[in-house]
Write a protein that binds this DNA or RNA. Sequence first.
DNA 1: CTCACTTATGGAAGCAGTTCCAAGGAAAAC
DNA 2: GTTTTCCTTGGAACTGCTTCCATAAGTGAG
Lengths: 346, 346
Amino acid sequence: MEAVPRKTTIREVARAASVGIGTISRVLNSSSQVSRETRARVLEAIRRLGFRPNAQARRILKRRAEMVCFLLSNRDFLHPFHARILQGVESYASGLKQHVLFAALHYSPRTPPDGIDLPPVLQEHGLIDGLILAGTIYPNLLRRIESIHMPFVAFSNNVVGIGDEEQFDQVGFDDFNGTLHATRHVIGKGHRHIVFAADVSYPWLRRRFEGYRQAMRENKLKHVLITSRNPQSFVDFGQKSAGRILSRQPRATAAVAGNDEIAYGLWRSLRRQGVKVPDDISLVGFDDREEAVLMDPPLSTVRVDKEEIGETCMKMLLERLHHPRMTFSQRILPTEFVIRGTVRQV
Amino acid sequence: MEAVPRKTTIREVARAASVGIGTISRVLNSSSQVSRETRARVLEAIRRLGFRPNAQARRILKRRAEMVCFLLSNRDFLHPFHARILQGVESYASGLKQHVLFAALHYSPRTPPDGIDLPPVLQEHGLIDGLILAGTIYPNLLRRIESIHMPFVAFSNNVVGIGDEEQFDQVGFDDFNGTLHATRHVIGKGHRHIVFAADVSYPWLRRRFEGYRQAMRENKLKHVLITSRNPQSFVDFGQKSAGRILSRQPRATAAVAGNDEIAYGLWRSLRRQGVKVPDDISLVGFDDREEAVLMDPPLSTVRVDKEEIGETCMKMLLERLHHPRMTFSQRILPTEFVIRGTVRQV
DNA sequence: CTCACTTATGGAAGCAGTTCCAAGGAAAAC
DNA sequence: GTTTTCCTTGGAACTGCTTCCATAAGTGAG
């Protein structure tokens, strides 16, 4: 490996400006105790020598890396949903001169905590100040992260099997009220036979189901949960559910899907069987993924602001770093029902 | 801001293991000059004290940040396409204990180079060793990056208005041969009237067009370029192009789209007009984005391995860092035509 | 038994900054 | 005119590591 060329240091700048090294440091950190002329002379020397302070050296002394890690915790690829969260994190962070490291984590829900291999960034010390956890989070991962005593904030909608008694900073959005409002909207359009399609063993889909059920109960309507066996994916789950919806009597006039992928699968399979959305059956989704707009007609769905999630995660993490002893908090972001073309008046 | 608790240092470990600090360093860097017993004693002390070496301190001495920045250069959100590239970068990097910083860049093609605002990470010195540039790259950005003398590799398919004489490390994929093979496939299925739909003012779409034209010429077929005015997006471009394809005489039996989004727009608009894919018209795309599989039937398209792009970028960047004077190189990755359901035999 | 050559180890110096304390000088107070 | 105070300023000491040099101990040859 060839040598990296020596860079200008603070001492050379000091010599060039005929001042002491302390003065340079003071100018760099814009602490006020420097006279006008001296500051001007120093800045001129900095400019002339093309000096850029070494970030590492400062970090040692400051004991702050000014860097956080966005850790994507499952084997999924960087899905658009999480990509948008990452964007929110980065955009908020860069405004505050904070840096964002991206790392991926490979683990299975059943690995014992000690067995989880952490990415290189977490094996060093001082590289990052804190962690933003995204992706599906199982208890063993939480244990593992806690064991390294690194401040973190979790995007908690995809947390699985972790009780309410668990204490950590988390940001999520409102599954329950999301489907509650979506279902009310559908009911408001005159529908009476509305089914809900999702695998409610996922906590977040369970919460969405409860929102749907609440809306049905309010209107004294019967709730119906549609599931399907051994789906390959959520889209496949939707496809397989379509038949079950059609075979029920009385025939449902609307379906609330647990997420957009299920809605997509449903839509696709229904269309193949000659059932038109929304003419024959209305449909709503959840998440507002890119697919929602690509569908034809575009899907009415529950929007969650992914960038806001990222932003809020970053904000909370910074608060945590400034106040390590602050009690843990949990922020639930609101959702918004977006009306597009898949719900019709009956 | 509360103080961060003092962490164990190398000197404490040295005391605990009754050895010198040099020995600790030697163990950490696994240089061989340490006896079995001493190494064991040191490792034991490290474990007992929960010592994690401070990354910053090492970096100062090593003059290497062991970190690169993935810089997304346009105003687009982190699109799945680039998200996958980032994944490739990260996955290759983490295997080599390198870290990946994510940063976004906001600039317009017409800002003068000096006017481009670089993200915080590029304003410090020593934070990163090099840069991976993705997104749409205009000459002014290239100028700006060169001005800070930071080694970089560009994902060059989306480079606009930069001549061949330009020298920098780049990774791209084979636009020309991609459509060449795709078009040959379509011709092989018996099609004779095949149109190409794209805005060829984009260099990469122009190259794809040339690939298509080459295949047509080989078979003594007439090439037809379909474009449309003021599209809002590529999908919109496709939608607007559909009418133009249908109104031509003789009617085309197949269309090659410049990318999957155009293909999607085409498909959607054709379907609305009662024209079925592939029964009435065959269709192929380019890129193999997520939409391709979601279409019904799924789109036959040209696949590019996004993770491989990321991996190759990272690999080239590391080579560049090890050999700063090496001549610039350009790597073109092959593409693969994936047959799904949108091309039929005539 | 001595000498040359390895191999292992301790720790000072150094990296590029920040911090803090002492000191110089000017202005203000006495 | 002297003392006090305030504002600047210089630079030693420090951060947590790596590197290198000197030394110690061990090994084999002569």
